[in-house]
Each structure stands twice: as C-alpha cells, then as structure tokens.
Amino acid sequence: MTRKIYVLNGPNLNLLGQREPGIYGALTLADVEAACHKEGDALGFEIDFRQSNHEGVLVDWIHEAHSEAAGVAFNPGAYGHTSIALHDAIKAVIVPVVELHISNIHAREAFRHKSMISPAAKGMICGFGLDSYLLALRALKTLTE
C-alpha cells in the first residue's frame, strides 16, 4: 500500500527559478515537484505537493495531514523563523514532520539562524538545494517504517 506524504511549501517558493537564483538555484517549484514525485515513487510514497503564501493555509494543511498522511516534508520558507502558529500545529499532530530549507539558513543573515519549526519537527535538513527535499523524503521513509 502506498503511503501519502505531504510536501508543503511556504511563502515565496512559488518564485523558485526567478527569486535570487544565486541562493535558491534555477530550478522552478514545478521542477522540485517532479523530483519529489520521482523520489516518492522510488520510496513507495504518494506525494501530495502544495504551496501557499498564507500561514493559516499551511496550518490547515498540517492539521489535515494528521488524518490524511503518513508524514510531512515541510519547507516553511520565512515562516520557519517567525511562526509560533506553525510550531504549535506541528506539535498538535501525530505524523512526523521534517523541516527543510534549500539554502543553509545558518550561513545566511542572523535572523534566519533560528527556526521556530525545528523544536517541533522530527528533524531539519538545510543547505542541499533540491536534494534537501529528497533527503527529507528519505528521512520520512525511515520515520514511517
């Protein structure tokens, strides 16, 4: 039986490929989605890939994952540094959440060094570009077996 994994993306990730390519690369969010589906197939996951610029929508999707998914790979974007609401949503669900970031947030501006998500997540992967998503999916494979 294929298990569903939510891959959630926060604000401004819809602009991948256009926004600061020196930091985020040239791949688009559609490219990331295709790679996640390919990796998901190899791992036995059905990937449900979503993006929103709205914090409350992301909270709703995390709540939904509680009953609909085996786990969540989550790139919260800038909300990772500011959102207590997302932290609390992750704490409220039983499915494992792996936080991920394309860039190494610890090698960037000081305000990006702290994550509000990490204390609630099972783990965090950052700095590996597109591979951060694939590594998060592999981590979820281990966490959900």
Rank of each mutant, 00 (worst) to 15 (best):
E33T: 08
E39C: 02
Y133L: 07
A121N: 07
K122S: 12
T82I: 15
L8E: 03
N75M: 13
E33C: 14
P11K: 05
S67R: 12
I62G: 01
Y79R: 02
G44H: 03
I105H: 07
V95H: 00
K122M: 10
H101L: 06
R19W: 05
E68S: 09
K38R: 15
D88R: 03
H63V: 10
K114Q: 15
I62M: 03
L100Y: 00
A26K: 15
C126W: 02
V59I: 08
I47G: 07
N104M: 11
H54F: 08
I105A: 09
H106F: 15
L15K: 01
H113D: 04
A78W: 03
P76Y: 11
A89E: 08
Y24G: 01
D88H: 12
V59N: 05
C36P: 09
G40C: 07
F49Y: 15
Q18C: 00
A78R: 10
E33M: 05
E55G: 13
D131G: 00
L140A: 12
I94D: 14
G77V: 13
N75H: 11
A70E: 14
L134V: 10
A89F: 04
F45N: 12
L86T: 11
R138K: 14
H113V: 12
V95R: 11
F111E: 10
R138G: 13
L43Y: 04
G77W: 06
H54E: 12
V59M: 01
W61K: 00
K122N: 09
R112L: 06
S118R: 13
G71I: 13
D41M: 12
H87G: 08
I62Q: 05
D88N: 05
V98C: 08
G123E: 04
F45H: 04
S52Q: 13
L58A: 05
S67D: 10
D131Q: 15
H101D: 12
R19E: 01
P96K: 00
S83Y: 03
P76E: 09
I94A: 13
I84R: 01
G25M: 04
K122A: 11
L27H: 14
I84T: 13
L8K: 04
D48N: 00
L13R: 09
H37K: 14
G40F: 07
T28Y: 02
A120C: 11
S118N: 05
I94Q: 11
I102W: 07
M124K: 06
G40I: 12
P119S: 08
A121W: 07
P21M: 04
S132N: 02
L134E: 02
E20F: 09
A26C: 11
G44N: 10
I105Y: 02
V97N: 02
E20M: 14
S83Q: 04
L27N: 15
